[in-house]
Amino acid sequence: MATVSPPWSYTLQLPHDPRAPGIARATLRTVLAAHGLTELAPTAELLASELLTNAHLHTRGPYALRLLSVEPDRVRIAVWDTDPRVPPGFGEAPPRAAPADAEHGRGLPLVRACADSWGASVLRELGASKGGKLLWAECARAEWPVG
């Protein structure tokens, strides 16, 4: 009889500190290992790293990493920050190509290329909500053809 694992989620609140993205990536690896999803770690860590670095570089306030089981073999990596502006190339418009000599500008197009799905939500300040935005990306175990 097949078993179904219950859905799970983790949220890690992070201060605006240059060490925060590394701590979040270590937490991500631990969570994936605890749920038997270590094969997702390389892609999930890349996605998280780009989203976390974007939040750290382009905002002044705290940010948060949220991990969510979307399906048994699929995880959503989401990063919340205090700035409600969705970065160019992560909304509806296609990403802009970074100039060859640019030091920044490749992260979010990389997320779009490596994620199975991705998106953004602008959060309004309501009650206890702090507003801002949530950028997310999903990755899943590869489905191998049977036969």
Rank of each mutant, 00 (worst) to 15 (best):
R74I: 00
R29A: 15
V79P: 03
G131W: 09
P84Y: 03
L28P: 03
S49F: 09
G36L: 06
P99Q: 02
P109W: 07
G22T: 06
G91E: 03
W136N: 05
R60I: 04
E138L: 04
R25L: 15
A100P: 07
L51D: 00
L108K: 08
L65D: 07
L40H: 06
T27G: 10
P99C: 03
P18L: 12
G147M: 09
F90A: 10
C139K: 01
G91I: 01
R60K: 11
A48K: 05
L134Y: 00
G89M: 10
L68G: 00
D83N: 14
H16A: 12
A41Y: 00
R96D: 15
A140R: 14
P87Q: 03
R66Q: 15
P109V: 05
A34N: 15
E50F: 00
K133P: 01
T82S: 13
S9H: 12
V75F: 01
H16Y: 04
L126C: 02
A78H: 06
A64C: 06
H56D: 07
H58W: 04
T27Y: 09
A140V: 07
F90S: 12
D17L: 05
P72G: 10
F90V: 11
V79S: 04
A97L: 14
I77F: 00
S117Y: 02
A44H: 07
T38H: 11
T27L: 13
I23L: 13
A115D: 08
R124S: 12
V70N: 04
E103I: 08
R76M: 12
E125Y: 07
G105K: 11
G22D: 14
L37G: 02
G105L: 14
Q13I: 04
P87N: 09
A98S: 12
H16I: 00
L67Y: 06
G107P: 02
H58N: 02
A140I: 04
W136M: 06
E71D: 13
L123M: 06
P6W: 05
I23P: 01
V122W: 09
L135C: 03
G91P: 02
R112Q: 00
T27F: 15
V70I: 13
Y63K: 04
G147T: 13
I77Q: 03
P99A: 13
A115Q: 01
W8E: 10
E39W: 03
A48C: 14
